[in-house]
Nucleic acid binder design. Sequence first.
DNA 1: GATCCGTGGCC
DNA 2: TGGCCAAGGAT
Length: 352
Amino acid sequence: MSQLADQLLTWFDVHGRTNLPWQIGDKDKVDVYHIWLSEVMLQQTQVSTVIDYFNRFLHHFPTLSNLANAPEDAVLAQWAGLGYYARARNLHKTAKIITHDYQGCFPQKLEQILALPGIGRSTAGAILALGFNQKQSILDGNVKRVLSRTHQVKGHYAQSSTLKELWRLAESHTPNIRTDHYTQAIMDLGATICTRTNPSCSLCPISNICKSSAAQTQLDYPNPKPKKIKPSRSVAMLVFVKNSQVYLQKRPSQGIWGGLWSLVESEDTPVSITQSMHAFDPSATIIEQLPVFKHTFTHYHLHIRPVVISCPSSSAKFHLIDQVEVGMPKPVSKILSQISSLTHIGLNEQID
DNA sequence: GATCCGTGGCC
DNA sequence: TGGCCAAGGAT
């Protein structure tokens, strides 16, 4: 066993996290469904954010079979607000595949798991290591940070040569025994000791073999990615209102907010807004313009102008604001919560 | 290899 | 305030 793994396992026995929701299973045995769900939720998402979503999701879909048989809208509704919605759609697809192709039992071979939608190399390794104690490696953000510091790996993560070297190191350190504990341990170290800013090297169990610690260059690793300017876009969101209800439409599965229900969008110009609202309902009239606000994605800023529009003669299908059982993007639910508080357009009045 | 894909917390 | 990025994967 590598010295790093040995010292990490010793540290884990005292300082490792053991109370995360997905670490607790019946009969002291983890549930692979829970491990898989947590790993997908944790992709590019911090533990503190995931915990509430994880518990609520499991409450709605207690078993993999429940998930497979649920409507996609119900799954997306539980994912709403968590972001990266392809994860939810792929999770649902994979649940169906496991139900139909694997008799409901999670496959235990790397090639089988890698073939499932939404599961890449690192998530596959995590499922096998944490769920089945197989000797498989992971390379998530924590492991990348720990290993790039320990071994002073040059280059940023987007470079394939850097990833290749980090994967080589990750596999070289993965022990034959207690792979489950080691996998949890190196993630715990990255999350609690070897943090991105202000790492606690004095408390680190592997500082004696860490090249960055010896050279006092911890903050130089991982090397930062060259930064890019985020472009800005503008859009008007049309809130069509009728009898205390709003109009929502399901977005295509491809692209931003795929599969979620959102407002009608228009180019943010008076002419375009007018055209769009009259195309929806010739008798539509603007009730109110709410303040423009900014929503920032990973790769661009979006300036949103909500326009509240009355369309009493529309025959489209509307939704009761407080009874939307589908997934909505964060800015849309934000707009609807503002609408709900507007007393002067009658939305807070109950109707029959 | 580069880009797309969400959101929230941190400093 | 705003840039940064977190238990990545798909194309």
